[in-house]
Write a protein that binds this DNA or RNA. Structure first.
Length: 631
RNA sequence: GGUCGUGUGGCCUAAUGGAUAAGGCAUCGGACUUCGGAUCCGAGGGUUGCAGGUUCGAGUCCUGUCACGAUCGCCA
């Protein structure tokens, strides 16, 4: 309708008001609920151009539009706003459009280019936590949004499976895991511990031992014992402790931290881990076997978590495969003058013209840094998928700078697709008790949280749900759907880029703006539709004001899908679904549906109910939330 | 210090530069002998951090300022 109005205004403008209409002037918005009308045209720009009061311009435009377009039944002018009133016929045809198309709101599948969505970049020595949940639900949902919007989507995950941190877990496991009578060490199988948790446990174990040894080294140094200390460290220590003289407490503490860093390099356990990394990079068979075995445990653990989360991936990338990529690109870029080399051999890019600093892209010893790898991986992906048009990276906002630089570098290397790469940056999830810190044990574990929330949903559903007809298995699935629905909705309803507070009590709450609230409404409509059976009226449909209000909300579903997709924001969709739910509940409360005696009205109310249920179900699915038929 | 992000009732969240800033939680008061009360209706609660500017019109854009956070590694 807006398109049509716009076209007519542009075409007939000169005839109607004497001057050509600039398309920028034409701004529509839905009419406020408290005034009469369906669509509002802002007339301030017209009034300005015509040098007349807004109301005069509005009246003139309104009269012409009403004469020209049948669907416009009436119009009202309030200040600078022209409120157009559409005819019932218009809304009836809108209703028909909504319910006759099972894919209403979605674009034609695969009608748009292929995009890759990366989410979840887990570390193999840390179990997934609350932060990952936001990341993964967000990425999954954006992928689904893009699909609904007609894109072809590849969901991918990068696994950080190499580096010194992995060696720490491996080493600690070798040294500290209890030896079984049969000579085995602790495994997920013989201990019953989930694989990722087991490996994570040894990572923590390593840190404990490291801290212990650190204390010993420092106290030795303080007592003047420098055996087993390199001369470089000794000199540095003497310099640092000398610098403490006469400083205030804060400065002394800062120096103590530096001493701690220094002492780390003198611990046996960290050296052993570093040795192990060297052996791994040299493909030492024993180390490699241990590495792949322990990573295997982690993946099995992750799979369990991902399954419960209800997410999946089309393609996996492992850093152990990709960490060498990118060097060729850097050398190539160096030859082409995109990068420059410092005397020590390290390679940099100068981004000062773009308001950024110089950034290292290759170490002096020729090894890759994070950036090198990301350059290589991006290019590799476009080779893997020849029709790929862009990549969405779901990564926390602490890496805003990194991605800004990455995209800039790719652009300077001459890749046109760089402008289609998007960093889906999201804010940190805080706890009421403060920041999550793994060292202080204040991390909320993903598995624990999901379990807790499903338990809460179970209790609530057993108390209030209508589940008598469900089998035990169906009930279990239902509790899961409600709990996970609540959790996902809670994390997705806020603007991704906003930092958010995770309030455990609130997240379990099922009233107000929550997932279960929407699920409940959906289930209730389904109950209604079951009772309606195959009701089929031959009377013409009738709609009144209450119906029209709902049709209006239903009718804009496509706009929200497209806006949410373009802004990479599931929150936009979540808020729309909530709005629709509230509107329907209000309608439900005040209008009889099955008990309505007027057959035409009854028929339209049933149709509307069915359409609302459909939109809710398909919308929730994009958020990764399933909509139960009963609950 | 530089750069980026965020400041909206007690708490949390919303608002393509448009009308009287919209909801949720919490608080208080109401509504089924009718389709599922995990519902609905109502009340109180705000000069959108602060100060300027642009505009017919600013929570939104610009400048300054304050607060909080992130980032500024040959870590990933």
């Amino acid at each position: 309708m807006e398109h049509r109005l716009r076209a007519i205004l542009l075409e007939r403008g000169r005839d109607w008001i004497g001057i050509d209409i600039n398309s920028d002037w034409i701004q529509f918005q839905p009419t406020r609920k408290d005034v009469r009308g369906d669509l509002t045209l802002m007339v301030f720009p017209f009034a300005k151009a015509l040098q007349c009061p807004p109301a005069v311009a509005a009246t003139k435009l309104g009269e012409h539009l009403q004469r020209e377009i049948d669907s416009i039944e009436d119009f009202e002018v309030v200040q600078g706003f022209l409120n157009l009133v559409f005819s019932p016929q218009y809304w009836l045809s809108a209703l028909d459009e909504v319910c006759s198309n099972p894919h209403f709101g979605f674009s034609k599948p695969n009608s748009k280019p292929r995009v890759m969505v990366e989410y979840a970049s887990p570390n193999t020595n840390k179990p997934l936590h609350l932060g990952h949940l936001r990341n993964i639900f967000l990425g999954y949902s954006v992928a689904e949004l893009k699909k609904a919007d007609g894109y072809q989507v590849v969901k991918t995950q990068v696994i950080n499976d190499r580096g010194i941190h992995i060696c720490k877990s491996m080493l600690a496991w070798q040294r500290f895991s209890p030896l079984q009578p049969n000579g085995e060490r602790e495994t997920p199988l013989n201990s019953g511990i989930k694989g990722d948790k087991l490996v994570g446990k040894y990572y923590v174990e390593f840190e404990k031992h490291l801290q212990q040894e650190l204390k010993e080294v420092i106290s030795r140094w303080n007592s003047g014992d420098f055996s087993n200390t390199s001369s470089a460290s000794l000199a540095k220590f003497q310099e640092l402790s000398g610098a403490k003289e006469g400083k205030d407490e804060k400065a002394q503490a800062a120096i103590d931290d530096k001493i701690k860093e220094l002492a780390k390099s003198e611990t046996e356990i960290l050296r052993a881990a570093q040795d192990m990394l060297v052996r791994w990079e040299g493909r030492d068979p024993e180390t490699y076997l241990l590495w792949s075995t322990m990573n295997g445990w982690v993946y099995q653990g992750f799979d369990v978590t991902y399954q419960r989360m209800g997410v999946d991936f089309d393609k996996l990338y492992y850093e152990s495969d990709t960490f060498l990529l990118g060097k060729d690109q850097v050398m190539d870029g160096l030859a082409r003058g995109v990068f420059f080399q410092k005397p020590d051999g390290s390679v940099w890019i100068d981004l000062s013209e773009d308001g950024l600093d110089e950034k290292l892209v290759l170490r002096a010893d020729g090894t890759a840094v994070y950036m090198t790898q990301d350059i290589g991986t991006a290019i590799e992906r476009f080779k893997d998928y020849s029709d790929l048009s862009g990549i969405v990276y779901t990564v926390g906002n602490e890496q805003d700078y990194h991605f800004k630089v990455l995209f800039l570098i790719l652009e300077k290397l001459g890749y046109a697709w760089a402008k289609n790469c998007y960093h889906l940056s999201y804010g940190m999830v805080d706890l009421p008790t403060g920041k999550m810190k793994s060292r202080e044990g204040t991390v909320v574990d993903a598995d624990d949280l999901m379990e807790e929330i499903v338990v809460a949903a179970t209790a609530m559903t057993q108390e209030r749900g209508q589940i008598a007809e469900l089998s035990e298995e169906e009930r279990t699935r239902l509790y899961e759907n409600i709990g996970m629905g609540g959790l996902k909705y809670y994390l997705l309803k806020v603007d991704p880029k906003k930092r958010m507070m995770f309030n455990p009590e609130e997240s379990i709450d099922l009233n107000g703006n929550t997932g279960p609230f929407i699920q409940y409404t959906h289930a209730r409509i389904n109950s209604l539709l079951r009772k309606a059976g195959e009701f089929d009226s031959h009377e013409p449909l009738i709609i009144e004001e209450e119906e029209t209000r709902l049709i209006k909300v239903l009718h804009v579903f496509p706009n929200f899908i497209s806006e949410a997709s373009q802004t990479y924001s599931p929150a936009v969709l979540a808020n729309y679904l909530y709005e629709l739910t509230k509107e329907y509940n209000s309608f439900y409360q005040q209008c009889p549906i099955l008990n309505e005696s007027n057959q035409g009205l009854k028929a339209s109310r049933i149709l509307i109910s069915r359409s609302v249920a459909n939109v809710l179900r398909r919308g929730l699915l994009i958020l990764g939330i399933s909509a139960p038929e009963r609950m």
